Simulated assay, not measured.
Amino acid sequence: MSLYPTEQWLEAFGHALDRSRRLDTIASGWGVGFDGDVMLVIDDIPLAETTLGDLPDSVLADLPENIRAGVSDVSLAAAPERFGETLRPSLPANVQDLLYQIETKVHDGTIYAYVGLEEGRCTGTEVLDDPTEKDVGYVVKGPYQTWRRIVDGRPVTSAWLNGDLVIEGNKVRLLRHGSVLQVVGDVAADVETTHLFPGEAATPGELVLDEAVRQPIAVGLLAEQQASLVTNTLSPF
């Protein structure tokens, strides 16, 4: 089970995308003749609001109880400095790695996650030190709490319609391949996940919209899958 949002989770997500038969069918033609790579921008990472004591039990399980009690009130924003070069080697490897990722992968409260996509294949994933490292065709932006709910099963379409996600890129191509990002979100929900940060409850309006779009999304995906299967069956190549 991977901690979200970390490099390990993104790697597991990439493997899940590669194994997804739904994506294989829906994404036929995606990234062919254009850049189909995607940048997932996760804003408002709650480092200052989250303490070490708020983390899932599994994260600090190997930390001695007396040390755990003494640092439980330390925020994640302050933790890298609190555990300097002298103390850090004595910490469990997973805690050291988490502190490293907080220092190097979170920039002004934001994580930039690169996902390479071409047709049904994930060509690579990476949490970037610098968002300009990779050229992408699409950027999908939203706050951590929105992404957390998508990983828990909220439809990407609902989050976009509600204005919780902003999608940047060629809109004409996106309409032509309208279900690709929805399926990418569905695959994210299939990854076995433990969240690093506490979640916030959805508003009643969000819940109503989520439920309202689920059936049309399912019907649309089924229609696209059937059309793609027919096209591939009839194609001589």
Rank of each mutant, 00 (worst) to 15 (best):
A113H: 03
L128G: 02
Y100R: 15
D97V: 02
G124N: 03
I111S: 00
I102A: 04
V127N: 00
Y112W: 10
G116P: 01
E119P: 11
T132D: 07
P92R: 13
A93Y: 15
P131R: 01
T132S: 15
G124L: 04
G116V: 07
T123G: 06
E118N: 12
E126L: 12
T123S: 12
G109I: 07
E103P: 01
I102T: 06
V95G: 05
L91E: 05
P92V: 11
G124C: 05
G120D: 05
D129V: 11
V127K: 00
N94H: 13
D130Y: 10
L98V: 11
H107Y: 04
G120Y: 05
T132I: 08
L99Y: 12
V95R: 03
V115H: 01
D130P: 04
P92H: 12
Y112E: 08
K105P: 02
D135Q: 10
T110G: 06
T123L: 09
Y114N: 03
L91Q: 04
T125I: 09
D135V: 14
D108S: 14
G109W: 07
E126D: 09
G109T: 08
D130M: 08
E133Q: 10
A93S: 13
Y114W: 11
Y112L: 03
Q101R: 14
G120T: 05
D135C: 02
C122R: 12
R121W: 14
L98H: 06
E118F: 11
V115P: 02
E119D: 07
E103R: 15
E126A: 13
E126S: 08
T132W: 09
E119T: 15
L91Y: 08
D108H: 15
D135K: 13
V127R: 00
D97T: 13
D135P: 00
E118I: 10
T110W: 12
V95Q: 08
V115W: 01
T110V: 14
K105D: 09
P92D: 02
L128N: 04
Y100E: 15
Y112N: 03
K134Q: 10
E133S: 11
Y100H: 15
K134R: 13
T125P: 00
K134M: 09
V95W: 06
T110M: 11
G116E: 11
D130G: 07
T123N: 04
V115R: 02
L91A: 08
T123H: 08
E118P: 01
D135E: 13
R121H: 13
Y114E: 13
R121F: 14
T123A: 03
Y100C: 11
